[in-house]
């Protein structure tokens, strides 16, 4: 979704419209909230969102180039859990509770980067981690309309051109 569309949604629907939209237009609501930068989420609490955001940032880190944080993957996941991935809500609820137990009640987001990596490595084989991993990657590389891949950051990184049509030659080896 384009920035102008986000802004349009924000300006068109104030707080009073939000309840109706939550019920009827979750994709747009989430996108609008995201643009507002209020940290308001459709599925996650703010604390949960901060933890999942930190997980995503370790799964697809920001270094010399942008990562999951800049691609706003957290909003993709938040939206996914109330749309096509509703069946994964339990995995997140249970997984986040277990994560909290593992860190002795400290928020995952508050751990140092090396502590976060060690924690994630220890839960690598769990359905929770695998789901967050897949959702992070989907949020990086699916169309921006789904909440992530902000400004096509993910697509740009892997050289994916989303034009509607192409003409040969397509690559380096079929050039005449």
């Amino acid at each position: 979704m384009s920035d102008s569309r986000r802004n349009f949604l924000v300006s068109s629907f104030g707080a009073s419209g939000a309840a109706w939209l939550t019920a009827n237009w979750p994709a747009q609501v989430a996108a609008a909230e995201k643009a507002q930068g209020l940290g308001a989420f459709t599925y996650f609490t703010r604390e949960q969102a901060a933890d999942v955001d930190a997980m995503a940032a370790q799964i697809y880190p920001s270094d010399a180039t942008p990562g999951a944080k800049e691609a706003q993957v957290i909003y993709f996941i938040d939206l996914a859990l109330v749309t096509f991935a509703q069946d994964k809500q339990d995995i997140y609820a249970k997984g986040l509770a277990e994560l909290s137990a593992k860190t002795g009640g400290r928020r995952f987001a508050s751990l140092s980067s090396s502590e976060q990596i060690a924690t994630l490595t220890s839960i690598e084989a769990t359905p929770f981690f695998k789901t967050v991993r897949d959702h992070t990657i989907m949020g990086m590389f699916s169309a921006p309309q789904h909440g992530g891949n902000y400004k096509k950051i993910g697509w740009t990184q892997i050289g994916f051109d989303d034009s509607l049509n192409f003409r040969a030659p397509f690559g380096a080896y079929d050039k005449a």
């Binding site: 370790q58 799964i59 697809y60 880190p61 270094d63 180039t65 990562g67 990596i117 994630l120 991993r133 897949d134 992070t136 990657i137 989907m138 990086m140 590389f141 699916s142 993910g154 697509w155 990184q157 892997i158 050289g159 994916f160 690559g171």
Partner: peptide, 28 residues
């Protein structure tokens, strides 16, 4: 792109800095 990311790059970790580096290097 999503299919590529989920399957992951060859001979690399399935997440983290190593994943990202290989994913970008091997893309296309």
């Amino acid at each position: 792109p999503m299919q590529y990311g989920l399957a992951g790059p060859h001979g690399a970790p399935s997440w983290g800095a190593g994943y990202k580096k290989a994913l970008i290097e091997q893309a296309n």
